[in-house]
Design a protein around this nucleic acid. Sequence first.
DNA 1: TTGTAGGCGTTATCAG
DNA 2: CTGATAACGCCTACAA
Lengths: 339, 339
Amino acid sequence: MASIRDVSKRAGVSIATVSNALNGQPNISEATREKVLKAVQELGYFPNINARLMKTAKTNAIAVFYPNFNASFYTGMLQSMYGACRENGYDMFVYISKADTSRKLVASILSSNFDGAVILHEKLAEEDLPLLAQRKVPYVFMDKEVPGKLMSGVLINNFKGIMQGLEYLKHTGHTRIAFMGGTGNYDSVMRHDAFMRGMKKLRLPIDPDYMFQGYFQEDAAYSIIRGSATGGRFANDKARPDAVFCANDVMAKGVVRALCDIGLNVPRDISVLGFDDNEYALQCAPPLATIRYSLEDMGRQAVLEVLRLMKPKAQGKLLYIDTKLVVRESVSIRYEGEL
Amino acid sequence: MASIRDVSKRAGVSIATVSNALNGQPNISEATREKVLKAVQELGYFPNINARLMKTAKTNAIAVFYPNFNASFYTGMLQSMYGACRENGYDMFVYISKADTSRKLVASILSSNFDGAVILHEKLAEEDLPLLAQRKVPYVFMDKEVPGKLMSGVLINNFKGIMQGLEYLKHTGHTRIAFMGGTGNYDSVMRHDAFMRGMKKLRLPIDPDYMFQGYFQEDAAYSIIRGSATGGRFANDKARPDAVFCANDVMAKGVVRALCDIGLNVPRDISVLGFDDNEYALQCAPPLATIRYSLEDMGRQAVLEVLRLMKPKAQGKLLYIDTKLVVRESVSIRYEGEL
DNA sequence: TTGTAGGCGTTATCAG
DNA sequence: CTGATAACGCCTACAA
């Protein structure tokens, strides 16, 4: 692979001159610039990026670290991210690491070249963040509340979303509310937390027997409800909760299905509320009431935040994406309450 | 950012010793190795990837160069690619470049670090391939028939697919067959080509008036058919073709819709055949007969081919992905022909 | 077992 | 306007 030295020899000038000519320095005569360009053409020379990056840091690319492509769910988000990159003249790449530990992931990140990064990766531990910070480049996290000098967070406003759901349930006459929680990421923790705080705030009773773990999976949620039917909790009209608030729509779908199979009618016998408002919400029968937010907006905001942090003396901050209640048939109106 | 020199100072050893200790050289005493490791921990040292890459080339990552994420269509392919990477211990990244010229794209590629790449990018011109070849790393193209020492192609067997479609149409009694072509990529050219050759081979008449350009878009295809109805070509029972073979399902959907709006019945008055077998095929009324191939398989094959080319004295080659006729209601049986 | 020294391909500084 | 030359951070003979 031709190096700058080869070019300099062929053009009959010094290495420094080649560098200057190529990097658009003004103090170069037209004649030599052309000689250099000609040599570059003939040799098919391209600067060695690694050597260059040792001196200057600019790559003109924004990185997205993301555990997988399983969720076709996220396609829209990546798309909006790329839109934001493109509008600002940046390339983008999505790096999927097989790292199974935080340190390995850090190694992956630190061995990639980018001007800024959006990171959404459960594996990354907070205590390793200082390692990333060594490289003076902006990072935006989508699952961590960790602002720093060059670090921001773009997060779903889970508390607001859960509150909207709980208030709606309360105002429509539901008091005994069950929670089907998820696991494994920031949102699962926050939604569980918000549920606990929200119930207290609304002075609604929290029944430990109504707190379920559905692992964010449809089948797990289904099984739990089916299982508890045998145990009697849902079969018994007295013991049954008025509503099940699910931490995502996927589980809600499983719950609706299970309740139906048990012989209960949603929403007459029991209401179900989801979270996310994705395709699963409409696959439910009846259609699922849920909490909506925009993944597209999240992606775009994240990239814009990276760009903002690149500016001279920007400071990291936390940015919460708004949520909205979506009313659909899976929640009944038990009695008219004030809104 | 702490460098190897900082580590060496802190550990009280030389730079070379640090390097040896970290890279698992055997000739290091346990005592010094521990000293070094301790210093590394304390400093949060990570080797500078660019400096390292100047000497050794290994990144343990496979790159995918891909113009955009618009097509949710391709999610499955990326997923299967990552599966293949992961099974073989590689990370993967998808690089989306805003490059609008072949040279800029080459620059993007050459300024990324990877052990091998899968490239699917219309913008990349064949004459620039030698530039890529300068870096002795395997490349697999999904839209170019250009085998080289370290270059392979993984391609849809468009000719076979088109032939399958044409033979089916012929055997079901269609002789006047129109073609709705696409544009802008390898597959559009190949499918058009295959259609011409196939029609000749089957001794079917090619009518220039039946050759349409739908730009791979539903709306464009729709308009063309609607438009030609006014002109009379489709309204006139005599002039009308027996079938329209579309170069993708997206256009086929537009064609079916247009024919319906004109007042023609598919497949009684005219048959429609697509290509791809994706979600659009089932959105047609009636469901679309089409040509199927597996994008998942393509992605997987492409990555495996990159991996194969990494082996000592592998040679590039062309790999054709198989196609299959999918029979559905959009094609009628005009008379019983031999099969 | 450890250290010294040279080089990888650039860019930046500073003479000429 | 052009050319030496010193970094950048790491690896790897080779020497001690």
